[in-house]
Amino acid sequence: AEDTGVRVELNEEDDGKKSTIALKLWVEDPKKLKGKYKDTGAIEFTFNLEKEVPEVVAQEMVESGFFLECDVKIVGKSIRDRVALIKWRRVRTGSPN
């Protein structure tokens, strides 16, 4: 995946079955963000792989004050890339869904 400066990792072991997974997001390289970033730390959240949209979660992070509106796309893309990788791994390992 492209290096967006925003890192998203699994925050739990993926058993390949759960539709809702725990993720952890943090800024690795603030220079890649357009807006000024205040260092808040890592943000842990849950994400439903079947129902949720990464860009909506990114918007909620903006509204919660973690990022500025100008960076909503980069945050959304970072989450989307990680979610795509998780889904791809599940298909590859033959997990249900």
Binding site: K24, W26, E28, G41, A42, I43, E60, M61, E63
Partner: peptide, 27 residues
């Protein structure tokens, strides 16, 4: 370690925790 919690109006819970050790690029 210090953690805090932010709940968005849509109901999603964000837990803020320290960034994992050694996971920041040089600034």
């Amino acid at each position: 370690s210090a953690t805090s919690q932010v709940v968005h109006s849509a109901g999603r819970r964000f837990i803020v925790s320290p960034v994992p050790e050694g996971r920041l690029k040089d600034q």
